[in-house]
Deep mutational scan, measured.
Amino acid sequence: RGFLEKAAVKKMAKAIMADPNKADEVYKKWADKGYTLTQMSNFLKSKTAGKYDRVYNGYVIHLD
């Protein structure tokens, strides 16, 4: 289950990176699912340092 969630989160993160207008909708879905910042950090780990920082930081702001 965790692997599928991670894959889904990364897919949506890539969608945000391609079209930032989708961010609020995606952040709301993640918040509704109760994803914590720790979970998001783990889901968005990448071999490329900083690749998903913008998405993660946007989610931090959304939760605030």
Score class of each variant (00 low, 15 high):
A49P: 15
R54H: 11
L37Y: 04
G58A: 04
H62Q: 03
S41F: 13
M12S: 07
K29D: 07
M12I: 05
A8K: 13
A49E: 13
Y59V: 01
G2W: 15
N57H: 10
N42P: 01
K11E: 06
A7I: 15
H62K: 04
Q39C: 07
K28S: 09
Y59I: 02
D24W: 09
K51Y: 14
D32M: 10
D53V: 07
T48F: 07
A49D: 14
W30V: 01
K45I: 10
Y52V: 02
K33E: 08
M12A: 12
Y56K: 03
A13Q: 00
N57T: 08
Y56S: 01
K11D: 06
A18W: 04
A8Q: 12
Y59K: 01
F43D: 02
G58T: 02
D24F: 13
Q39M: 11
Y27I: 02
K6F: 11
E25T: 08
A31T: 09
I61S: 12
K10H: 06
A31F: 10
I61L: 14
K45C: 15
M12T: 04
R1H: 15
T38R: 13
L63V: 05
L44P: 01
I61F: 07
K47C: 14
D24I: 10
S46D: 15
L44Y: 01
T36E: 03
N21F: 08
L37G: 04
L63C: 06
K22F: 06
N57V: 11
K33F: 11
Y56M: 08
A7T: 10
K47W: 05
L4W: 15
A7V: 14
F43L: 09
T36H: 03
Y52Q: 01
K14R: 12
L63R: 04
K51T: 08
V9E: 01
N21I: 09
K47V: 07
L63P: 00
Y27F: 08
K28P: 03
Y59L: 00
T48W: 08
K33H: 09
K33Y: 06
I16C: 05
K29I: 09
H62S: 04
I61M: 11
I61G: 07
Y52D: 02
L4V: 11
N21W: 09
K10M: 13
T48N: 11
Y59W: 03
F3H: 14
H62C: 05
Y59T: 01
L4I: 12
D64W: 12
E25K: 09
L4Q: 12
Y35I: 06
I16E: 01
M17E: 04
F3D: 15
G58I: 01
F43Q: 03
G2A: 10
N57P: 01
K29G: 09
S46I: 07
V55D: 00
A23G: 06
V55A: 06
F43V: 05
K11M: 10
D32K: 14
N21D: 08
A31M: 09
D53F: 05
T36G: 05
T48Q: 12
R54W: 12
G58H: 03
L63H: 03
I16G: 00
T36D: 07
V55L: 02
T38C: 15
M17I: 11
M40P: 00
T38D: 15
E5W: 06
K45Q: 12
R1K: 15
W30E: 00
V9W: 02
I61R: 14
Y52H: 02
A13W: 03
V60C: 13
Y59D: 00
K28R: 11
G34V: 02
K33S: 07
V55Q: 03
F43P: 00
K14C: 13
V55T: 01
M17D: 03
K10V: 14
D24A: 13
S41W: 14
N57W: 14
K45W: 08
K51G: 05
A31D: 06
E5K: 06
A23T: 05
K45S: 10
K10E: 08
S41A: 14
V26N: 03
K22H: 06
D64H: 11
W30P: 00
K14E: 11
Y52R: 00
K10S: 04
A49Y: 10
M40H: 01
K22V: 12
K6M: 12
A13K: 01
A15P: 01
M40W: 05
Y35L: 09
A15H: 06
D64Q: 13
K47M: 07
L4Y: 14
G34D: 03
K6S: 09
K47R: 10
V26D: 01
K14G: 06
A7D: 04
E5L: 13
V55E: 01
A18P: 00
M17T: 04
P20Y: 09
E25C: 14
G58S: 03
M12G: 10
F3V: 10
M17Y: 04
N21Q: 12
A18I: 09
A23Y: 03
L4R: 15
Q39S: 04
A15I: 13
A23Q: 06
D64V: 13
N57K: 14
Y56C: 04
V55F: 02
M12D: 15
A49K: 12
A49F: 08
G2K: 13
D64R: 14
I61A: 13
Y27L: 01
A15N: 07
S41H: 13
K29M: 10
N42Y: 14
A15S: 12
K6N: 05
R1C: 15
N42A: 12
E5I: 13
K22L: 13
K51W: 07
K29R: 13
A31Y: 11
L37E: 06
G50I: 03
A13P: 00
A49M: 11
L37V: 08
T36F: 02
R54S: 15
E25P: 05
T48R: 10
K28Y: 04
K33T: 11
K10F: 09
V55P: 01
I16H: 01
R54F: 14
V9I: 12
M12W: 10
T48D: 12
M12V: 04
D19E: 07
Y35N: 00
E5G: 09
A7E: 08
P20E: 06
I16V: 11
L37N: 04
M40E: 00
Y27A: 00
K51N: 05
K10R: 14
F3A: 13
D64L: 15
D32Y: 08
K6Q: 13
Y56D: 00
G50A: 05
Y35H: 03
A15K: 11
S41Y: 10
Y59Q: 00
M12E: 15
K10G: 03
A15E: 13
N21G: 12
N42G: 10
G58R: 02
N57Y: 13
A8I: 10
T38Y: 10
A18G: 05
K45P: 03
A49I: 12
L44V: 01
A13S: 03
K47Y: 07
L37K: 10
N42F: 12
Q39T: 08
V60Y: 06
V26M: 08
K45M: 10
K14D: 13
A23V: 03
D19K: 05
K22G: 06
L44Q: 00
Y35P: 01
